[in-house]
């Protein structure tokens, strides 16, 4: 069974409307390990050794976070800078992450349309995620399409609950090996997978 590691970054979870709901109970899903970065490192003092050990123990890495200024919240960037050391994660001796898979799970204020080519934001979500995609590739990891929850400003309680249900279904399938990462590769977003969109 593939082991899934969620690296979660939200600087103000007490004010979150969506992520707060999404993460309720994720730790209970078999083969999924939930790791709350802002709770562990409020002072940005990332324990590199611990983080590297966690990475070694898992096969699928999820960066889950709200989209802030078309990018990741700062602690996640700090995590990347410090954990993915040269000589460990990349470079001629950096072989430890080879073959693992990475994807982003993102909540974004903007709707789907705003992130289409020529849309309100000018670029697609994939464009904004290029740096992360290449980071994964440099470390020999496979970068999978992101899982997106768009239009959070307009999501109500029921919408958040629905998003949570879908997300957990997806995670459970990943942890149980029912979703083959190979099947995700050709998709636009990971949540387009058939497990969440049964053919009518």
């Amino acid at each position: 069974m593939p082991k899934v590691l969620i690296l979660f970054a939200h600087p103000a979870l007490e004010r979150s409307r969506v992520n707060q709901v999404l993460i309720q109970g994720v730790g209970d899903i078999p083969n999924v390990h939930f790791h709350d970065l802002y709770q562990h490192y409020p002072d940005f003092y990332v324990d590199v050794q611990h983080e590297q050990e966690l990475l070694l123990m898992h096969d699928i890495i999820i960066w889950q976070h709200p989209l802030y200024w078309y990018s990741v919240p700062p602690l996640l960037k700090q995590w990347i800078d410090l954990t993915l050391e040269h000589g460990w994660a990349y470079g001629s001796k950096g072989v430890y992450l080879k073959g693992k898979r990475v994807l982003n799970v993102i909540t974004a204020g903007g709707g789907h349309a705003a992130y289409e080519a020529g849309g309100y934001n000018g670029f697609t979500m994939h464009d904004f995620l290029r740096p992360l995609e290449q980071t994964a590739k440099l470390c020999g990891m496979e970068y999978l399409p992101p899982y997106l929850i768009h239009g959070t400003h307009r999501i109500d309680q029921a919408g958040a609950e629905k998003a949570r249900k879908d997300y957990h279904t997806f995670l459970r399938a990943l942890g149980a090996g029912e979703v083959d990462p190979e099947e995700l590769k050709p998709l636009y977003y990971a949540n387009d997978h058939r497990i969440l969109n049964p053919v009518k």
Partner: peptide, 10 residues
Amino acid sequence: RDYGWDSESL
């Protein structure tokens, strides 16, 4: 040191 910020090896 914080090797992540180290560019010597690079």
